[in-house]
Each structure stands twice: as C-alpha cells, then as structure tokens.
Design a protein around this nucleic acid. Structure first.
Length: 299
DNA sequence: AATCCGGGGGC
DNA sequence: GCCCCAGGATT
C-alpha cells in the first residue's frame, strides 16, 4: 500500500475541498473544540453549527458552564438529540474546572477520564486542539479505510483494529497527521459517503481497493438495526423534555405524561400502556429531570 | 457483545 | 419508509 501517496493526495484534496467549519479555525480554543465534538456525536454538522455558536458565546470557558445548573445545558442543547450528552458535557466542564484548573487536558488518558469522552472524542481533541499525533477514527474514517484499504463496501463493527489501520496510514509529522485525520473524516462525509459515493471526485480513487475490484457487494454484517423512532420510548422522552425546555417553571407529572402521549394514535397508546409514565421515570433515573415535591423540572 | 439513547436529513 | 449520522455509557 502506497501510504505516502495516499496521505499526500488526501491532504492535498482537503486543502482544496474542505468545508469551512468554524471549529477548524486556527484560533479555536480547546474548549470550543471539545464542545463541537460532543455535539457532533451522532448529530450532523449543519444542525450543530448554530447551537455551537450560541453555546460558546454563553459559556466561553468550562468554568462558565460549570457555574450554571445542568438544566441550562439541557435547555441550550435544544433539539440536537441524545440530551444526555448535554448533561455529560456539563459534568465534563465541572471536572475540567475543578481538576484541571479550567484548562482542557491534552493527554488522551486524562481526556478519556472525562464524562462523555470516549475513544473518538479523546483523540479528536488531543489531535485537533493540541496537535498531538494519534489515529482519530470515526464512522467516516472507518468506511474510507474499509473501502480503500480492505476492498469492502462498508465497515464492520467497530474494533480496536480500526486504530491500527489508521495508524498505518498516518504521516509521521504530527501536523500532517492531524490534517490527514481531518481529511479522512471529511472525505467520508462528503465524497466517500455511505449511500452514493462520488468516486469520480475522489482523490483516492486510484488506490481504492473496493473500486479496483469492481465494487463487490461484500459489506460485512452491520450493527443491529436501531429500533424505529416513531412510537418509541425515546420519542416519548423527547416530547417530555421539549415541554420542560419551553416551560420555565416546573410542571406536574400529569402534564409531563400528557406531553409524552401527544400526537400518539389511540391504537399506539393502547398497544403500549404506561409508556408515558415509564418515559418520565427513565428521565428521572437519568437525572435529565428532577422532582421537587409533586412537580418536575430540569435539574 | 448487545441495548439504549433523539431527531432530522437524504434518497 | 429506510438508512445514516465527527459515539458513549451501561449491562
């Protein structure tokens, strides 16, 4: 495998074709980059942009967020989805303020110790905020490597091997390695896409094993399909939180349960009795909602 | 290793 | 309608 040629072509393409995303600006703080990585976990770039800007305007440092109640983070998270991430980001801000003098750590192990920071986010922050040399592997990178290196139509289940695969391709120079990491993610996001890859625009087409072998239909077994959202507990939870974000005081359990049922068909309600109450209880368990007396509010 | 966790965009 | 998305925590 011509790793030097691949790295050069990909970095060159990134210089020409990368989107101008604000968290890639050179002066972006490590905190701002950390916030972007939290928001980008399973949420697309276009939806993140306005929330990211507003978040950093309001909370320019971890200590600023840590000083506000966690419910404010849940409210500002708006509809980015998976609101537990807002809670985790708040906890991470408290941890950074209390344990790291309000400075985002650069060490991968210290980053991994923060709430809500896993293998992807830790290496992304160490790499993009501090210029360290690590393989940064996300869903885009895994797909690019699956196709270019392994000749497969799609990536399989995430595995430790993914980090080794990426490390094999990484340029020696840390700055070049950081750009290469970002470029692999960008290529997967806008050219080597899951659905309809734009191979005619791909800078790695000449090296791509999947292309070279005639696009075999050899996708490995995918992770189990996510349950349908319509009618799910997640949807019910989302409706309750939407009510609490807009309500500035507390609401009753009856109001919360009614919000959980809003829009459900009579048949769906009959098929899933008690779902609304379960949704409220699970939000309480997750501390996304807290009870004070008979009423409920954001934490 | 499997499940859970939002919500929206693309096709 | 279905698939996918800059994942991580929990069991």
């Amino acid at each position: 495998m011509d790793t030097t040629g691949i790295a050069h072509a990909l970095i060159d393409w990134f210089g020409r074709s990368a989107r101008k995303l604000p968290w890639r600006a050179p002066e972006t703080s490590a905190w701002a980059i950390l916030v972007s990585e939290f928001m980008l976990q399973q949420t697309q770039v276009e939806r993140v942009l306005p929330r990211w800007t507003a978040w950093l305007e309001r909370w320019p440092q971890p200590s600023a967020l840590a000083a506000d109640p966690p419910g404010e983070a849940v409210r500002a998270w708006d509809r980015l989805g998976y609101p537990r991430r807002a809670l985790w980001l708040h906890r991470a801000a408290v941890e950074i303020a209390e344990q790291h003098s309000d400075q985002v750590p650069s060490d991968v192990n210290q980053l991994l110790a923060l709430t809500g920071v896993g293998p992807y986010t830790a290496r992304a922050v160490a790499t993009f905020a501090f210029g360290e040399r690590h393989p940064v592997v996300d869903t885009n990178t895994r797909r690019v490597i699956a196709r270019v290196v392994h000749g497969r139509a799609a990536a399989g289940m995430p595995a430790a091997r993914d980090l080794d695969d990426m490390a094999q391709l990484l340029p020696e120079e840390p700055a070049a390695a950081a750009v290469f990491n970002a470029a692999a993610m960008e290529l997967g996001a806008i050219v080597c896409t899951a659905r309809a890859p734009r191979c005619d625009e791909c800078p790695l087409a000449a090296w791509c094993e999947w292309r070279g072998t005639g696009y075999p239909d050899n996708a490995p077994e995918k992770r189990p399909k996510q349950a349908k959202f319509e009618g799910s507990d997640r949807q019910a939870r989302g409706r309750v939180l939407a009510l609490l974000r807009s309500a500035h005081g507390a609401v009753t359990r009856a109001e919360a349960a009614a919000a959980a049922r809003a829009g459900m068909s009579p048949a769906a309600l009959a098929a899933n009795p008690g779902q609304a109450e379960r949704a409220v209880e699970s939000l309480l368990r997750d501390t996304l909602v807290i009870a004070e007396g008979e009423r409920l509010r954001l934490p």
